[in-house]
Design a protein around this nucleic acid. Structure first.
Lengths: 146, 146
DNA sequence: CTAATCACGACTAAAACAGTAGGAATTAAA
DNA sequence: TTTAATTCCTACTGTTTTAGTCGTGATTAG
């Protein structure tokens, strides 16, 4: 039950893009710049951004002085959208996904109640939180970590 | 970001045990009986239950007519406790775990805020929900599934 | 022309997952 | 005392997923 690096790094990249947009409208960010900021290799970021582009979350311009930018304003992209590109469906088990086949125990299963509740609580967080909100977040040294 | 079968099947087994406890106080359940109810192989259940025992969540008696029972009343065991045995720590990323090493970006990382929020929302659900609550849950045919 | 940049598909090593297998120890009951 | 049912322990193994890398091609500003 861990986020893969795909999801984590995708989010890093998107937040980096959101922070650019915060400062200069229409600013582009190249992969090599993103690699510096995020600590992820150029090669791997390249791959992740390809997926994010396919999902319609970023736009690119090619050639020298090219790069990436958000396809929509940062306040219109949710963390959930980004994570789903990296991770696939975010339900904790397949049997409660709308597109997954339900298991044969479905009708008598008391436990799906658990997965439903977990799923809802995750979605409540990530579907409400936008990149803008994350980008403007300043880490607080004093906050308790777990 | 999916529960492994370890976590899923462990929970099935524990709920089966809780349902026994609901009916007859002090009833034991053998692995072969559990296998029928849960749809998991005897061999694999055996392995999972060993971990649950090591974690102090079930008790056993060996020999013929032996079996397993909950080590504590069903209302005193949370879903979170069970899942943690199967899955390990349930935080979505290692860097926010109290026992995981924080990543080197920690101080400047705006994204830990996301993981914190997700983590809290998951724990709010699974640490409050007891086996008793799950065992008494009747699946509702009419509830919307996602 | 050239250097910087994105684009695409194939490939791979390592780890995690999902079990299985063999056999030993214990105990109730015949 | 034998037998059958049961838990206990240690390995082992095939498959899938993860976490990348690599080579090469296409595009474009200067």
């Amino acid at each position: 039950m861990k986020m893969s690096t795909k999801g984590q790094y995708s989010l890093r990249a998107m937040v980096a893009l959101a922070q650019v947009q915060q400062n200069q409208e229409e600013g582009m960010l190249s992969i090599s710049q993103m690699a510096k900021q995020t600590g992820v290799t150029v090669r791997y970021l390249e791959k992740l951004l390809r997926s994010l582009k396919a999902a319609g979350l970023v736009e690119t311009t090619r050639g020298a002085a090219g790069g990436y930018r958000l396809a929509k304003p940062a306040e219109c992209i949710t963390v959930g959208q980004v994570l789903q590109v990296g991770e696939g469906r975010l339900e904790p088990v397949e049997c409660i996904q709308s597109d997954g086949r339900p298991c044969d125990r479905k009708k008598s299963c008391a436990i799906q109640y658990v997965w439903q509740r977990i799923s809802e609580s995750i979605h409540q967080v990530i579907d409400e939180m936008t990149l803008k909100e994350v980008a403007s977040q300043t880490p607080d040294e004093n906050q308790s970590v777990i």
